[in-house]
């Protein structure tokens, strides 16, 4: 058995074991009535009468995550290019990015609600965290072409913008896509945090209302949907990243 196949088999087996344990905890009531059997969560998810509620929430969260993610990707790449082309601005942008990362999203909420409104806040929280990740990964990618390449372009008499286009940007692509794989779960997390501050719809709203109304299957179903979304985006980003690495590294 090749090591890759073995890894895959172990991984699948591990997930199955995890699900079985969760199911046993649920059916035996080991952790009380608030840990449902996985089969009941699945039944709830597949029950057509729940699809409208879950679908609306999912659509709201996914569209916020997608819009915020797009803004974040564009802004992150843009700021990284600015820092690369205008080195004078780079130290400020680097420190600002580190600060944005250290600031808890919840602390920004009052400010964001005032400026962007309750419906816009989830999008902006997603955009901020994605901007940070993409800025850092792109910047370090733009720095990643080694000294020989820099020396070569310097000796060839290339202007900064020429080197950026011909070496630094292609060399940065693998790291940029690394950043995208990381941004995937951050997108869903950011959207649901933003929804806690007064959004009308979304998985984040569903988590809180299901908890308060003691609707355990709904709570778990929404959580499963959030995890699946993150994993799907993560998987897509991972595939793209592998392809880019094959081409550019």
């Amino acid at each position: 058995m090749s090591s890759r196949l073995r890894t895959a088999v172990y991984g699948v087996a591990g997930v199955v074991v995890l699900l079985v344990i969760a199911q046993i905890i649920g059916t035996t009531g080991l952790l009380g009535p608030t840990w449902p059997p996985i089969t009941e969560v699945a039944a709830f998810l597949f029950d057509p009468s729940n699809h409208r509620l879950l679908g609306n929430a999912l659509a709201a969260t996914v569209s916020e995550a997608a819009l915020g993610g797009l803004i974040g990707i564009v802004a992150g790449i843009g700021f990284a290019l600015i820092a690369a082309l205008l080195p004078l601005l780079a130290p400020g942008l680097d420190r600002f990015a580190a600060l944005i990362d250290a600031v808890p999203a919840i602390a920004l909420a009052p400010f964001l609600i005032l400026v962007f409104g309750r419906e816009g806040t989830p999008v902006i929280i997603v955009a901020l965290s994605v901007t940070f990740i993409i800025y850092i990964s792109t910047s370090s990618g733009l720095d990643s072409a080694g000294r020989p390449y820099r020396d070569l372009f310097s000796v060839l008499g290339a202007r900064r913008a020429v080197r950026l286009g011909r070496v630094d940007v292609p060399a940065a692509l693998p790291k940029l896509f690394d950043g995208l794989t990381l941004a995937a779960p951050a997108m869903i997390l950011g959207a649901t945090i933003g929804e806690w501050f007064g959004a009308r719809r979304g998985l984040g709203v569903l988590f809180v209302s299901a908890m308060q109304n003691y609707r355990i299957e709904l709570l778990w179903s929404a959580a499963v949907l959030a995890v699946l979304c993150s994993l799907i985006v993560y998987g897509a980003a991972l595939l793209a990243q592998r392809a880019v690495v094959r081409r550019f590294a």
């Binding site: 080694g146 020989p148 390449y149 070569l152 000796v155 060839l156 008499g157 011909r166 070496v167 292609p170």
Partner: peptide, 27 residues
């Protein structure tokens, strides 16, 4: 000026021909 370093510094995403053509593009 022409230069070759110990590390070949060929761009990995370009073919041999594209790498050799690179100085024209830069100039």
């Amino acid at each position: 000026l022409g230069v070759a370093f110990q590390e070949h510094s060929l761009l990995p995403w370009l073919t041999v021909r594209q790498n050799i053509t690179l100085p024209y593009k830069v100039a």
